[in-house]
């Protein structure tokens, strides 16, 4: 039902636009760029709504478009995405026990993108590991590894539900 998918896409764009913005903003760290990325993503979603396989996965599908647009944006500025190999020697040396929520959020935003994106999708946008795998296009075990590394880097306690 192509036409049904079109209406679903419009509805989902309206419903998830704030989340799309937060993800774009978390990735590129610039409000103007994030707005452009959300706009371009919305256009792409409307152009490609017929490719949506299952209406249940529309949120992951939209987020995937946003993440891809954001990554393209970073690449077009002439640099590669930062991964774990780009972590400075000891950036997170402050004591880990008395951080406020603000400090935690800030520390997350300082993670290299390849770790930051899975972290915000998992703990802030509350996606499942499988959904994160769909959104980022990386396999499940790599998603887990990156979340684990992010915890280690932040000096964060591994929760039972960390995965």
């Amino acid at each position: 039902m192509k036409d049904k998918n079109y209406q679903l896409t419009v509805d989902a764009l309206l419903r998830y636009q704030d989340a799309m913005y937060r993800i774009a903003m978390s990735t590129v760290r610039n409000a103007d760029d994030a707005l452009d990325i959300v706009q371009a993503s919305a256009l792409k979603a409307l152009e490609n709504y017929h490719k949506l396989k299952s209406p249940d996965s529309i949120r992951s599908w939209l987020f995937r478009i946003v993440v891809n647009e954001a990554i393209d944006h970073i690449k077009s500025s002439g640099r590669e995405l930062l991964g774990e190999e780009n972590i400075p020697e000891s950036p997170y040396h402050e004591p880990a026990y008395d951080r406020s929520g603000e400090d935690v959020c800030e520390a997350v935003m300082k993670l290299p993108e390849q770790l930051r994106i899975p972290v915000i999708l998992r703990y802030y946008e509350e996606l499942s590991l499988r959904e994160i795998s769909e959104v980022t296009g990386i396999n499940l075990s790599t998603v887990k590894t990156r979340l684990y590394k992010a915890h280690k880097l932040l000096g964060a306690d591994l929760q039972e539900d960390y995965l």
Binding site: Y21, R22, A31
Partner: peptide, 19 residues
């Protein structure tokens, strides 16, 4: 610390009206 402790700040991110 728990990474989720930053969730409120994250969700409180200012969304430009223009969006």
């Amino acid at each position: 610390m728990n990474i989720r402790e930053g969730k409120k700040e994250y969700l409180d991110m200012q969304i430009p009206e223009e969006l």
